[in-house]
Structure formats: C-alpha cells, structure tokens
Design a protein around this nucleic acid. Structure first.
Lengths: 259, 259
DNA sequence: ACGCTCTTGTGAAGGCATTCACAAAATCGA
DNA sequence: TCGATTTTGTGAATGCCTTCACAAGAGCGT
C-alpha cells in the first residue's frame, strides 16, 4: 500500500554506474532515477512563479519524503540555503547539468507503430533537452510520411542517420521479433544508450546501456499487489468468521496456492 | 555499464508489500518485479517445446544471474528438481498463480490518444491474463469508434463501467492536467490499482497502489549515463594528454559543473 | 548399491539505499 | 548583538537486496 509513496520499479539488477560531478562525488543510481522527478516538480514550480522551495514542499510535489530528497540533492553538492530552502532556478540548472541535459541530445526513434507515434509526439521529450533527430521504420507505407514535422526514413538509412546526426541514444519501439536485430545495427553504428520498449531481452556489448520499459510487466506487478489485497481481505474475513465459527478457511483463501 | 545486466529502475521508494503464499512466505518487491521477466522467458521456452530448464539458462534468457533467479524462485516454494532443473509448465503456473494472473482480470484504459491506442493494441496484455474491459475517452470524436473490437465510451460512463465490469485495475493515459481528476474518479468508483503514464504525481488513499511509467524520466536516466561516458572519455583523454603535456584539463572536462 | 555429476535451495556476508536525528548555518526581530 | 526559528546537510543506524559458496538432493552409469 502506502499510496503514492509506492513506486518501486527495482528490477534490481546491480549496476556500477557512478559519476564524478564537479565536486568529485558519486551519484547513486537510485538518486539519478529520482532526479528526473525533481526536475519535473521544479519546472511546475518555476511555471507557477515560485523562486524558492523547501525540501519539504519539493519532496511532497515529487512524491518522496524530504530526508530522501535532501540526501539525493547532497550528492550534487550544496545548493540549498539553510533556513531558507533551494533556489528553484539554480537547482533546476544543477540537476539538468548532472543529467547531461544541457546538450540537446539527438535521439533516434525506431518503429512508428502506435507506440512509436505516441513517443514521437510526447511533449516531454522535446521540452527536456531531447531532440528527436531520426524516425525510422521499415514499413513502406510509413516511409516518407511526416510525424510531427519530421519525415520517416526507411530502416536502410538507419546507420547513415545515426552517424550523420551523431546520435548516441536510441528508442526501440519495434516488435520483439526484430528488436535484437535493430539493436545490433544501432550499436554497430555507434549508439551507446538504448531505451527498449520491445518485450525482449537485448544482448549488447558492455559499453552500451539498455533500459527497458515492459508494459505487461508493470501490469503484472500491479496484479500481484491487487491479488494480495484480495487474499488479505479473505483472510480477515475468515478470521472474523472463525470467531463465531471455529473453522476458518474459506475456499478462496487458498487461491494463491492453486496449481 | 554492464550491458544488459543493467536494468535498474529503482525509483526506490520503500514499500511494505508482502504476500503470504501457499507456504506462508513473503515475496520481496524486487522479486515480484522480476517474476514477470521470468514468465516471458518461460513462455518462449514453452513455445520452443522445451520441457525443462536450468536456473542458469532461464536466468540468461531473462537477463539476470542464476543465483538471483534461484533465490527469487525459492520465495514461491520449491518447484525445481536438483540435478535437473525446473519444469517449464509447472513453474509457469506457479508464477502466474503468485502474480494473480489466473483470474483474467478486467482492466480499464482511460485515454485513447496515440499512447492509449498503443496500449489497447498491446498483445502482451491479452496474452498474459489481462482483459481490457473498458475504453474511455472524453473526446467526442473518439467516443463510439472501435479500437481492437471494443467501443470507446464517453468518460461520463467511467464509474458505471468500473462497477459493471468489476474493474480493480486501471491504466491512465491522459494528459497530465487531467490525470489527478481521472484518478480520483477511478478510486471513488472502486479501482485499487493504477498504472499511470501521465507525467504527474497522483495522490491516492493508502489502500490504492500506483505505479508510474515516466517516459521522459527514462530518457533522462540514459542521458546521465551517456553523459558520464563522455566525461569519462574526456578524463581519460586528458590523462593521456597530461602525460606528454603537464596541463591536463580540457575545456570539455569541466562540463559537469557548468551552471 | 555406490560413487559421480549435476543443479537446486539457502544460510551468511556484503553492499546499497532509506531513514533517523541532530549539528551547523542562515535569517529575522527585538 | 543576540536569541529564536527555520531548514539544510550529513554521520550513523537500520533494513533490504544481491551475491557468494556450499550442503543437500536427484539422476545415471556401472
């Protein structure tokens, strides 16, 4: 439970990423994942005209607790003022800089089915320092059409585009059956970071990062918790029943062990 | 780096979910998140006609190491055979049961923009025990159209649909500006698990679970690591330079500290 | 029946991340 | 100037997850 405090993706595979920042420190992975949240909250605050924010209110806007927020920010350096809070603009800039968002990175998007189209149109990308520089699909009906002002190119052009636009980040939104092949070509062309929406495990060389978004997995995780609630409710109902009954195991309470 | 071993979403907010399974144990959240991966790998194996699999090969198919896989499976009980491996079908059934996927849960999908349409058509949902039972949008142009054989309903019907279909899981794919309102209505109608694609923090009562998929955040995390690689490369280049030079700080190496 | 080989299941150790709790710093009012 | 108040930054403690490493169990050939 614990409501919105509850996000935990934790596919939990250890990682050894660490970045030295200006102060020579290191930023934990869990912190990096949250910096993006803080950035979004800060952007809202800035839009609302707020100049200064305390760890308490920024934390609640981002849905985390304030101790964690302060610890996270401390990895970037000391950009708050005791007794006052954080300067919204300064902190925004620090986070953007830490995340490397000040370079307007070029991104390639491979696959323009519904998901690809949704991603191409996602305002959050453009507004946060990412420029979609290449749209690629192998469907002849799509090639040459324009999506958000950019022409879709045939997948034969993939390598040329990656090199011409100096693209290091790619988003894969193709069917699972061709994901590995697309991935291999991207890597060969020089891409070093991949966001994968295809339900497939990608094998890449050690210098390449892959992040995966698995839509079905997300639902399954929810399902587990939802199921747990149902079972729990049953157990409680049984306990109440047992009180007047003596028996205490309903048919449904055993469902978690069904084969 | 560490290639495909590298998935770690870890927005890392503590959670206190625990489920008692048949054996009365408890399943860690990190394990639950990976069960979905194992399930996918097992499905491929079954399709390929494999009857038995070792922890080593299942682990590599899922992109994790075998010790972790075995530990994860041990939370479900003892379904392997020493010296032999795991029976693919039995293990699949155990995982499905643990995740509560044997009940063909009804899911509501709110918002049928490109992302919503992509989700509606996502084969992974149907094939893994989820039945999309309601499509809702407030755009008059969409209401009444059919998406994958199901009619889109007007958002006024949201509460009725949730109750009629006994829906406990909903997917929010609407703009951030209306996400909280949609969320409130879903919760009031009885939904207890929400998968949120809108870039907004949702406030919900304690008995409701929210999982969030933040597309921009994913790219930003990649950006961080990509940036780190660039900085690292610069540092190494500097070191090499310093060797013959004595100076050793290129203009670009300082970028992480830019304001 | 027995020893060899293979692979699981799991205590124990180690590593990260979160949370706690408080000293240090900054502002404000008197 | 000084004390009260606020809020940051951070050591220390706690807890969760991963990894290690090996004993226990299962099959197989002889």
């Amino acid at each position: 439970m614990t409501a919105h405090r509850d996000q935990l993706d934790a596919l939990g595979v250890a990682a050894d990423h660490r970045q030295a920042n200006g102060a020579g420190r290191t930023v934990p992975d869990a912190t990096v994942a949250r910096l993006a949240l803080y950035l979004r909250a800060l952007t809202s605050l800035a839009d609302a005209g707020t100049a200064t924010v305390s760890s308490e209110s920024l934390a609640s806007a981002a849905g985390v607790n304030s101790a964690k927020l302060r610890k996270d920010l401390s990895y970037l350096g000391s950009y708050g003022v005791r007794g006052v809070g954080y300067d919204v603009e300064l902190l925004t800039e620090q986070i953007r800089s830490t995340l490397g968002l000040n370079q307007n990175r070029a991104v390639a998007l491979i696959g323009l089915g519904h998901l690809g189209q949704a991603l191409a149109g996602y305002a959050g990308f453009a507004s946060r320092g990412f420029r979609i520089a290449a749209l690629v699909d192998n469907d002849a009906a799509l090639v040459g059409t324009f999506v958000r002002g950019l022409a879709v190119q045939h997948s034969d052009e993939l390598e040329n585009l990656v090199r011409a636009e100096d693209i290091s980040i790619a988003v894969i939104a193709v069917p699972a059956s061709v994901a590995q092949e697309v991935c291999d070509r991207l890597v060969a062309a020089g891409v070093t970071s991949i966001l994968n929406f295809a339900p497939a495990v990608l094998n890449v060389p050690p210098h390449v990062d892959v992040r995966k978004v698995d839509l079905a997995a997300e639902l399954q995780i929810l399902s587990f918790h939802d199921n747990r609630k149902a079972v729990q409710a049953d157990i409680e109902a049984d306990a109440a029943l047992a009180h007047s009954n003596g028996a205490g195991l309903s048919a449904r309470a055993g469902q978690a062990g069904t084969a």
